[in-house]
C-alpha cells in the first residue's frame, strides 16, 4: 500500500505532462520573452537611470508588467488546466474512483501547477529583475513572484474545477477586479492578490510608492497561506460532492 505522499507524487507526475503541453509552454514563454525585451528597451532608453519618480524605478516596471499581467496570466493558463483538464477530458475518473483521499488529488494538482509555474514564471521574472534593476530587485521579484504563484495557483486550480470557462472568468478577475475595482478602495484592494504580490515587492525592494499602504510581509505570508488552504480545501470538498463523468 503506497503512502499518501507517494500517491500525491504519482498523481502529480501524471498531471504535469497533461498541463505542460508544448503549446502552453511556448505561448507562455513568449509572453515572458516579450516582457524581457520590453524591459531591455526601457533600460536602454535610459529611463531607469533617472529614477527621480516612482514611474522611473525599475521596480515599478516589474510591478506593472510582471506582477500585474505576466504572473497572473501564466498562473491562470497553467493552474486552471490542472483539475480543469482532468475534468474536461473526463480522465478525472481514473483518480476519483480509487481508494484515496480527495485531498490527495487536489494537492497533486496544486503541486503539479507549482512545478510548471515556478520555472515558467520564475526564470523570466528573475531575468527581468536583472535586466531592469539590480540585485535588490532580483530578490524582491523572486519573492513577490513566489507569493503570486502560490496565491494565483491555488485560486485558479479551484477555478478550473468549478467552471469550464475558467480562462474567461480568470481574465475578468485579473483585468476587471484587480486592474480596476481593487484600485478604487483599500477595502476592495484587500481582496486582490496583486495587493500582496506588490506589497512583497515593495517591502523587499524597499520602494515605498509602488502601492498605497503596502501590507507587511507577515500579512502577505499569512494571507497567501490562508488563501491557498481555503481554495484547496474548497476544491477537495467540491471534488467529493461533484458528479464525475
Amino acid at each position: 500500500m503506497s503512502s499518501p505522499v507517494s500517491t500525491v507524487v504519482a498523481i502529480t507526475k501524471r498531471i504535469v505532462p497533461s498541463v505542460a503541453t508544448r503549446g502552453r509552454l511556448i505561448a507562455m514563454s513568449l509572453v515572458g520573452l516579450l516582457g524581457i525585451i520590453i524591459g531591455l528597451v526601457v533600460r536602454n532608453s535610459g529611463q531607469f537611470d533617472e529614477a527621480l519618480t516612482v514611474e522611473n524605478d525599475p521596480a515599478y516596471f516589474l510591478s506593472r508588467f510582471g506582477l500585474a499581467i505576466f504572473v497572473p496570466l501564466v498562473a491562470l493558463v497553467i493552474a486552471s488546466a490542472t483539475l480543469g483538464t482532468l475534468r474536461e477530458e473526463r480522465t478525472l475518473v481514473y483518480f476519483w474512483l480509487r481508494p484515496i483521499g480527495r485531498w490527495q488529488i487536489t494537492a497533486a494538482s496544486f503541486v503539479a501547477g507549482l512545478l510548471v509555474l515556478v520555472p515558467l514564471i520564475g526564470i523570466p521574472m528573475v531575468i527581468l529583475g536583472g535586466v531592469t534593476g539590480d540585485g535588490r530587485d532580483i530578490a524582491a521579484i523572486a519573492i513577490a513572484s513566489l507569493v503570486g504563484i502560490v496565491a494565483y495557483g491555488s485560486v485558479f486550480t479551484l477555478l478550473g474545477l468549478l467552471t469550464q470557462r475558467a480562462l474567461a472568468w480568470g481574465l475578468v478577475y485579473i483585468l476587471v477586479w484587480e486592474g480596476f475595482i481593487a484600485g478604487l478602495s483599500r477595502g476592495a484592494g484587500r481582496f486582490a492578490i496583486r495587493t500582496y504580490t506588490t506589497s512583497a515587492l515593495s517591502r523587499v525592494a524597499e520602494v515605498g510608492d509602488l502601492i498605497d499602504n503596502p501590507e507587511s510581509m507577515a500579512t502577505v505570508v499569512i494571507v497567501t497561506v490562508l488563501l491557498a488552504a481555503a481554495c484547496l480545501g474548497f476544491a477537495t470538498v467540491r471534488l467529493n460532492n461533484m458528479d464525475v463523468d
Partner: peptide, 15 residues
C-alpha cells in the same frame, strides 16, 4: 469500497 470496484466507462479519453 471504491478500491473493490473496477470501471470501464464509455468515455474514450485516456492519458
Amino acid at each position: 469500497v471504491r478500491g473493490r470496484i473496477g470501471l470501464v466507462s464509455q468515455q474514450e479519453q485516456l492519458f
